[in-house]
């Protein structure tokens, strides 16, 4: 238990990589201090960690399996985010962004992570 907490603390928003995110269990991703969203190539939400659910004010179970860019994150459904995953198979970039968490304009940092051939693309959200 102790060791796992230490490990998670070292995995920061800026440094964690896609392989580490993929290898983590759901509970471990829940322990991260930033939002983690994993979206498959059909746009379906497959990973939605507890941190993100709390920030958005949503129930994880109702988000999982839904179209992420249609139902939860329309504000990312433009050329600045969603289109980039379509255009760039491999992507690791941090961008300043504004989300509407609980309908409040909220400045965040987004980290967009994708690797050619990987089943999920990850979006990390830091408030």
């Amino acid at each position: 238990m102790e060791t796992s907490v230490v490990t998670i603390a070292q995995l920061s928003f800026d440094t964690i990589d896609l392989a580490e995110l993929e290898a983590m269990a759901e509970g471990e991703r829940d322990g991260l201090p930033f939002g983690v969203v994993g979206v498959d190539h059909q746009g379906t939400t497959q990973v939605y960690n507890r941190t993100e659910a709390a920030m958005a004010g949503l129930d994880r179970e109702s988000v999982l399996g839904s179209g992420f860019f249609e139902t939860v994150a329309q504000c990312m459904n433009n050329f600045m985010v969603a289109q980039r995953f379509e255009d760039e198979p491999t992507l690791d970039e941090i961008i300043p962004y504004v989300l509407t968490l609980r309908m409040r304009p909220t400045r965040v940092r987004l980290r967009l992570l994708a690797r050619a051939g990987a089943p999920l693309r990850f979006i990390l959200i830091e408030r």
């Binding site: 949503l58 329309q74 504000c75 989300l99 309908m103």
Partner: peptide, 28 residues
């Protein structure tokens, strides 16, 4: 979050009190 139309509540100077994602998608 899912509404396919943008909604924004503002004060008279335009400061946003509430905004949904569809509105931000077009505005940002």
């Amino acid at each position: 979050y899912a509404a396919p139309v943008g909604l924004v509540q503002i004060d008279m100077s335009g400061d946003i009190a509430m905004i949904n994602p569809h509105a931000m998608k077009h505005l940002l």
